[in-house]
Design a protein around this nucleic acid. Structure first.
Length: 424
RNA sequence: AGAGGAAUGGCAGAGUGGUCGAAUGCGGCAGUCUUGAAAACUGUUGUGGGGCAACCCACCGGGGGUUCGAAUCCCUCUUCCUCUGCCA
């Protein structure tokens, strides 16, 4: 959530930032917020004046009662009635103004960082780096959805039976390979100084609001209605919300947390060949890294996180590229996002496997996540990134490493974790 | 799940209708003393909002109510503790 004082003092920059994102009616939205903010402040001021007066009256009555001047006290009581009525009225007005302002504020996405490229769609994203060689596959190479069936390591039919589409069952070497990757990712993060967290998979609405999933992305989360809880779409939600309503000491910064969780996404309206196999699922595993930093240090932290993800993909020996997302393609809450895509050799497609973002103060403002510096309390910056999301890594790994005999070579870095060198 | 008790500042813990934003202790910060440190002493130390400022307003788990006036009384929700039951 953007800060009203910022919008008030940087009106043109706010409008320009929103326009870079192709946010419709940016000018009207900003004008409305400035108007509602003014109304809110005026109402607050008036209410304060009435309350000052009625506080003074109450004290006066108290004094009179003590002195036993009953008649005078009774007379003063009568005067308070109109003040009371007026303050009630103003209080209602204030609450209404605050609610309206909040309502509008919540509709605004984050402002893009100056380095965010112009553009409206994914086609306008900028490739900042491409690494690794695309493998040459044997002539009878198969896409991963055929490989997993042949090797019997991921079973969609069983998932369909017990749950529904998009909930695969991992079996045998498939399950062990997943477990190996999770351990590998967590250990690498620990080595990089991240504290491991195992959070709940269900969160309340306040948490959904804190990281920006609510109110606008409600439909993308599974909602447990009899308890009013949401299945997390990413570990970002519970982990970042650990720090909701927190004022950190400067010495505690930067906060670096990592967590492995299952992630649940409804992905309403998904379609076609792009969602085949492991390409898009309703439930998947992901290891997520989260950082909380001082404002002046967040972009260095973003670079550090990008380098961490690069390191993981290089150790896995997978070709990848890094995209800087354009204004029109960036997530609602992000100021700058790098997407990582891994090369899936049999599909001959790039698959998104990580998204690393700096949210600057956007989430922190919703979370009331602050720190103290030189006596002042100030909003922090939050960042997160996948390191990594498993299914598409598994897909790329299976496709890229298939050998002439139909078996799959396991990258060296994982063999110690899973206990085998070949999937067959 | 049932019965009872509790929720106050970073922590501990007073406060049961009126100058209480809140005693006291610990912790934190600044200073005095000291070669340095400790101890001792002095001062300071919550969050948000309004105002150029002096200053004003709100907040004692959340919400609502009674009253001229609520941390204090009433209702409700949540959480925690103890006992009983159930359970991985």
């Amino acid at each position: 959530m953007l800060q009203t004082t910022f919008i008030r003092e940087n009106k043109e920059a706010t409008i320009a930032g929103l326009q870079k994102r192709y946010f419709s009616d940016a000018e009207d939205a900003v004008e409305l917020i400035i108007k509602l903010d003014r109304l809110r402040r005026e109402t607050q001021g008036e209410l304060d004046r009435v309350l000052t007066e009625s506080n003074a009256k109450a004290k006066e009555i108290g004094g009179l009662m003590k002195q036993g001047k009953k008649a005078e006290a009774e007379a003063a009581k009568v005067e308070t009635a109109t003040l009371k009525e007026r303050s009630k009225e103003l209080d209602e007005q204030l609450k209404k103004a605050e609610a309206e302002l909040h309502n509008e504020l919540v509709k605004l996405p984050n402002l893009p960082h100056e380095s965010v490229p112009a553009g409206r769609t994914a086609d306008d994203n900028v490739t900042v780096l491409e690494h690794g060689e695309k493998p040459t596959l044997p002539s009878d190479a198969l896409p991963h959805w055929d490989l997993i069936k042949k090797l019997d390591i991921v079973d969609f039919d069983l998932g369909n039976k017990i749950t529904g589409a998009g909930f695969p069952v991992y079996k045998g070497q498939g399950a062990r390979l997943q477990r190996a990757m999770i351990s590998f990712f967590l250990n690498e993060a620990a080595a990089a100084g991240y504290l491991e967290i195992q959070p709940p998979l269900l969160v309340n609405a306040d948490s959904g609001f804190g990281t920006g999933q609510l109110p606008d992305k409600e439909g993308q989360m599974y909602h447990v209605t009899n308890e009013d809880l949401y299945l997390i779409p990413t570990a970002e939600v519970p982990i970042t919300n650990l720090y909701r309503d927190v004022i950190l000491q400067e010495s505690e910064l930067p906060v670096k947390n990592v967590g492995h969780t299952q992630c649940f996404r409804r992905e309403a309206g998904s379609w076609g060949a792009h969602v085949r196999g492991l390409n898009r699922l309703h439930q998947f595993d992901k290891v997520e890294i989260v950082q909380i930093t001082k404002p002046e240090e967040s972009y260095a932290a973003l670079d550090e996180m990008v380098a961490h993800v690069q390191m993981l993909l290089e150790k896995l020996e997978l070709p990848y590229r890094i995209l800087r997302l354009c204004g029109g393609d960036m997530g609602f809450t992000s100021a700058l996002t790098y997407d990582f895509e891994v090369w899936s050799a049999a599909q001959e497609r790039w698959l998104e496997c990580s998204s690393v973002s700096n949210f600057e103060t956007y989430q922190a403002n919703r979370l009331k996540l602050r720190y103290k510096t030189e006596g002042k309390t100030q909003l922090l910056h939050t960042l997160n990134g996948s390191a990594l999301a498993l299914p598409r890594i598994l897909a790329a790994l299976l496709e890229n490493n298939q050998q002439a005999d139909g078996s799959i070579r396991v990258p060296k870095v994982l063999t110690g974790y899973c206990g085998f060198e070949v999937v067959k």
